[in-house]
Design a protein around this nucleic acid. Sequence first.
DNA 1: CTTGACATGAGACGGAGTATCACCCAGTCT
DNA 2: AGACTGGGTGATACTCCGTCTCATGTCAAG
Lengths: 227, 227
Amino acid sequence: MESRLHLVTSLIHLLNERGWDATTVDELARVAGISRATFFRVYGSKEDLVFADHAVMLERLDAFLAETDHDVASAMREGLMLVFRYHLEDKERTLARHRLLKQSVQLRNRELLTSHRYERLFRRWLQTRLGDEGVHDSVAVGLAGAAVALHNSYLRRWLLNPSLEILEQFQNEAKKLIRVFLSGYNVDGIVTDRTGGPVAVVTILGEISDTEEVCDAVRGALTVRSP
Amino acid sequence: MESRLHLVTSLIHLLNERGWDATTVDELARVAGISRATFFRVYGSKEDLVFADHAVMLERLDAFLAETDHDVASAMREGLMLVFRYHLEDKERTLARHRLLKQSVQLRNRELLTSHRYERLFRRWLQTRLGDEGVHDSVAVGLAGAAVALHNSYLRRWLLNPSLEILEQFQNEAKKLIRVFLSGYNVDGIVTDRTGGPVAVVTILGEISDTEEVCDAVRGALTVRSP
DNA sequence: CTTGACATGAGACGGAGTATCACCCAGTCT
DNA sequence: AGACTGGGTGATACTCCGTCTCATGTCAAG
């Protein structure tokens, strides 16, 4: 498999040089040293060739999510980081593919499809972990959608300027997103006033030992805020 | 344009009856009363034909977002409802397309692409309204991703069981999602304690006339919660 | 050695999408 | 009126992707 992915990288380089449209499957097969028929058997299609590594990655992510014993938030974060790091580790192929995508709308669309696979994987996993009824389903659907969108956004940022800082930035943003979602949807605890319409939503982030401590903090913060 | 969309609907029915793969572009063109060449000029491709109405809808949404003077939350919600209602209004075409999609992976993939167009539209609009720096960019990216995912989820639910209740359910969930995002990311006001690590995040949803009123509500709610 | 499962190659085929050229039919200029 | 022009259309040829079928090679088990 490793050698196969290495070959994929060379073929992506070839496509870059000769152009996506200008390079026929016959040429690719010839360079790969296989027949046209075998090319389709192995890679599926000309497009699939370019994203062959994602199939591998999707399996890894699937395995990780299935086996992890982290809590939902940690597993979600680690899953996202797993995918992000994977792109950064295969820098050569990732960058070559990115250059190639600039040439072809068809390929950019295909990339969007791939990211949908990740989204679906995360969504289904969240649904099994949280349940797929009512609010929990919204969390699963929304968080998966938002998280993958965030991932793609930071990956694009990295592609424009490959630096390791972005990895850390992404991790922070991912944490924040997950926190906002899970606490906002009361997955890990939310308390609202029951007497009337909503007045304030209080999200507890740490251990609360004393109720008055919270009130003091709220009072202090509101005082700072008010004119 | 209306008559063109009406023709699209009949062609989708035709594709349903004869099968997506089994129906050639020649047949479609013949039924539409145009030549093969004209078919490609008008519809772009065989796939595009099936989603021709989405192009119209995307333009409408774009126009709505560009012209609206609602606040971000309301505009976002109304934009989503605009799209959702559009599917429900064109019930015949939407359901026919849904049946057609069951036949072909290719078409289902194409549909995912279409939803990405909506996502991009929302994201870019959010970025212009909120800014695309730091936290605000994360809100734009994440909210657009989550909102469209939620929309697709509820649309799928409606397709399995077309009832009007789902419209209302979707509206509530969309509202909730937007609120969670905007308040969670401090876009419309959030206050935290500044003395130490985060203890509680309080999101103010209504007009606050008195600080102690908030504290009372918080205290009451926490009391209810504690064992 | 034979057999059967499996990977590969060779070649034919169908069909999507593109490019080119000719045509028609407005509206416009002389 | 007659010539001109340009956008929309049809006819046709062409490229190339992806599939299918059949022949060949390989390897392991019996």
